[in-house]
Amino acid sequence: MDRAELEKKLIECVAIAYSKDAASLTLDTSFKNDLGGASVQMVGLVSQLENELDVFIQLADAAACETIKDLVDKVEAEL
């Protein structure tokens, strides 16, 4: 999976976990400022990543990401 595909996939996962329209999300979307940052949604996102990308990201590592781009970087490093 190349970087562009990964970014698209991550945005889809975030959209599902946070019940948002994927079109409203960008790589610069902030988890805390734009999405509210509730832990239960972050748990949903980590689950989505496991389901869709077969990648195991610790909740604390995901929660430390400020933007979707930061999460893409983290997932890319794990793949």
Partner: peptide
């Protein structure tokens, strides 16, 4: 439910 079969099996 949050996890699919493969992820669940691993967990």
């Amino acid at each position: 439910t949050m996890l699919k079969e493969k992820a669940m099996s691993r967990r």
